[in-house]
Deep mutational scan, measured.
Amino acid sequence: KKYKVVEVKENKDGTVELVVENENGEKKKITLSKEELDKLKAGDTVELK
C-alpha cells in the first residue's frame, strides 16, 4: 500500500514520528530513525507492507 506523509514530528530521542495516510483516508503513525527520514519530507509517498 502507498501512504502519503501528512505530518513529520521530531522526538527528543532522535527518532522521527510520521503520520501517513492512504487513499482511503486511513492514517497510520510510524516511527523512523533520523537516517531513514533523511530522504523523506511532507508530501512524499511511502510504501508500507
Rank of each mutant, 00 (worst) to 15 (best):
D13F: 03
K2E: 09
V20W: 03
D38S: 09
L48R: 10
G43A: 04
K29S: 14
D38F: 02
D13K: 01
V20E: 00
V6L: 11
E26D: 13
K29F: 13
G14K: 02
E26I: 11
E7D: 11
K9E: 03
K1D: 11
S33Q: 14
K41C: 06
K39L: 11
G14E: 01
V6E: 01
D44L: 06
D44T: 03
D44S: 07
S33N: 11
E23M: 07
T45L: 14
Y3G: 08
K27R: 14
E26W: 03
N22V: 08
T15E: 03
K9D: 02
L32H: 02
I30G: 01
L48E: 13
L32G: 15
D13G: 03
K39A: 05
V5K: 00
V8A: 05
K28F: 15
D13Y: 03
G14C: 02
N22K: 03
N11L: 10
T31Y: 09
K41W: 07
K2S: 05
K12G: 15
N22M: 11
E47H: 13
E36Y: 14
L48M: 07
K49S: 15
S33W: 13
D38P: 15
L40G: 03
E26M: 08
K12F: 12
V5A: 01
V16H: 05
T15V: 03
E35Q: 11
G14I: 00
L32I: 14
L40A: 11
K49G: 15
L18H: 00
D13R: 01
K9G: 05
S33V: 11
E7L: 06
V16N: 02
V8L: 09
E36F: 11
N24H: 13
V20M: 06
D44Y: 01
L37W: 12
E35K: 11
T45W: 14
K29D: 02
G43F: 03
E26H: 10
V20N: 00
L40S: 06
G43V: 04
L40M: 08
K49D: 15
V5F: 02
L37H: 13
K12D: 10
V16M: 12
K34V: 09
E7F: 05
K9S: 09
E47F: 03
T15G: 04
T31H: 05
V46H: 05
K28Q: 13
K28P: 00
E17R: 04
E7Q: 06
L18I: 11
I30M: 05
S33R: 15
E35M: 13
T45Y: 15
V19L: 12
K34L: 12
K34A: 12
D38W: 01
K2F: 11
E17S: 08
G43Q: 05
D38K: 07
V16K: 04
T31I: 10
D44N: 06
G25L: 03
K41M: 11
K49T: 15
E7H: 06
Y3E: 04
K41P: 04
G25H: 05
T45E: 15
E26G: 05
V5M: 02
K12C: 13
A42N: 11
E26Q: 08
V20D: 00
N24T: 11
K1G: 13
V5C: 10
E23P: 05
N24I: 09
V6W: 02
K27D: 02
K34T: 12
E21I: 09
T15P: 01
K4D: 04
E35D: 14
E26V: 09
E7R: 02
L37E: 03
K29R: 12
L37M: 12
K49P: 15
K1R: 11
V6Q: 03
V19D: 03
Y3Q: 08
T45H: 05
L32W: 08
T15N: 06
A42F: 06
E47K: 04
E36N: 13
E47N: 12
K39H: 11
D44M: 05
L40R: 05
K27Y: 07
V46Q: 03
E26A: 06
T31C: 14
G43S: 05
K2Q: 08
N11E: 05
D38I: 08
K28E: 11
N11T: 09
E36V: 08
K41D: 08
K4E: 05
L37G: 15
L37R: 12
G43L: 04
E36T: 09
Y3L: 12
V16L: 08
G14A: 01
E10K: 04
G14M: 02
K1A: 10
Y3S: 06
E35N: 13
L37N: 14
L18K: 00
V6G: 01
L32E: 00
K2W: 06
E47D: 15
G43H: 04
K4Q: 08
N24Y: 11
T15Q: 06
K12W: 13
N22L: 06
K39V: 08
T45D: 15
D13I: 01
L48I: 15
K12P: 13
S33I: 09
L32D: 00
T31R: 08
N22Q: 04
E36H: 14
K39Y: 08
A42W: 03
K27P: 04
K29P: 02
E35T: 12
D44Q: 06
E47V: 01
K2N: 07
S33M: 14
V6S: 03
V16T: 05
A42H: 06
E21R: 03
E7I: 09
N24G: 07
V5E: 01
L48Y: 00
V20G: 00
V6N: 03
T31L: 12
K27W: 08
G43I: 04
V5D: 01
V19T: 09
S33H: 13
N22S: 15
K12A: 09
L40D: 01
K49Q: 15
K9L: 14
I30C: 07
K34E: 06
K1P: 12
K28C: 15
V19S: 07
E7W: 05
K49M: 08
E26N: 05
V8H: 03
I30L: 09
E36G: 15
V20P: 00
T45P: 01
G43P: 02
D13T: 02
K1Q: 12
V46T: 06
V8P: 00
L40Y: 14
K29V: 13
E7T: 11
V19W: 09
L18D: 00
T31K: 09
E17C: 12
K1I: 13
E35W: 07
K12Q: 13
K4F: 10
V16P: 00
D38L: 06
V5T: 01
E36D: 12
T45G: 02
V16R: 07
E35Y: 07
S33D: 12
E47T: 02
D38E: 12
V5R: 00
K34W: 12
D13C: 07
I30D: 00
N24Q: 12
T45A: 02
K4W: 09
E23C: 09
E23G: 04
K4S: 04
L48D: 15
E36C: 13
L40W: 07
V19Y: 05
A42G: 04
D13L: 01
L37C: 15
L32P: 01
L32T: 09
V20A: 02
V20T: 03
E26K: 05
E21N: 01
K39T: 12
